[in-house]
Amino acid sequence: MKGLVSFIVGVFILFLSINLRGQDFEDFMEKYTDVNGQSYMQPLADAFGANLNSGLYHNAYIQNNGFQLYLGIAVMNAVIPSRSKTFMGTTQGFFRPETRVKAPTIFGKSEVVAIQGEGQTYYTFPGGLDISNLPLAVPHLTVGALYGTDLTLRWMAYDLGKEVGRIQLFGWGLRHSLDQYLPLQPVHVAAGFYNQQFSVGDAVDASAWVANIQASYQWRFITFYGGLGYERSTLDIAYTYEGDDSKIAFDLTGDNTIRGTLGLTLNLGPMKLHSDYTLARQSLLTLGLGVGIGEIQKMGE
């Protein structure tokens, strides 16, 4: 079990490349089997959901009918705002007097906060990871086009053994060109919807979806792009704490709803290097690198 919970954090922090030790996540969460735990974990849901819903496009041009392909990797980095590093925690149990205090979230300072109560008793709030960024890297494939529509897939799966289970990400999206109906040239406009599911064994179940309107403008080898979107995400964590077999479960909903994105793509032949910034309640920066074919409108089309 310890391996499992450690891996949960590993996945969230760096998806596959973190070297976090065995019992750490359980140690972090042990104190939080109560209402404070929800607030402690909420920023993780915000940042992880925002990351999943990013890096999904880097232009808005879709052919009517023709071969169009992009295969690459997107690295998203949610910048953790200071407001997401603390929450107002309330003492629990038989500690007296009941007290509210500013305590670290999972991203907050790593130091424990201890407050004194009656008769030299102390209530403690766990520290956090003390990090300012939550990166996430995912592989990405977009293929089209049929009647001005393309399909995006994100997929990865890895079996980490009996104790941890299978880590799996599956995402899909459909995008339809709007500029084929509207006289918007030279600006391309598309509407997209993307849905993603992420799981780690039976312990983590995350989902995210975003609907957006995308636009792009081509200037020489640079594509300027942007979009407005509406997004929702959930993060459900459930595991059995091995100390006393108590169940720990959090059903979290990401705070993000409206997002605005601006970015640019460098079209270096078939190589595409793109970066954008998303402004939202949980803002983030995206960097992508991949190979694209048929993504630039040819002269005269």
């Binding site: 490349s17 140690d27 972090f28 042990e30 104190k31 790593s110 403690t124 520290g127 890297a137």
Partner: peptide, 19 residues
């Protein structure tokens, strides 16, 4: 840059509580 972002580690001390 991406690799550094994903891979650079340092030894850090975290505080925990157990009840």
């Amino acid at each position: 840059l991406a690799l550094l972002m994903l891979g650079a580690c340092e030894t850090r001390t975290f505080e925990y509580v157990t009840t």
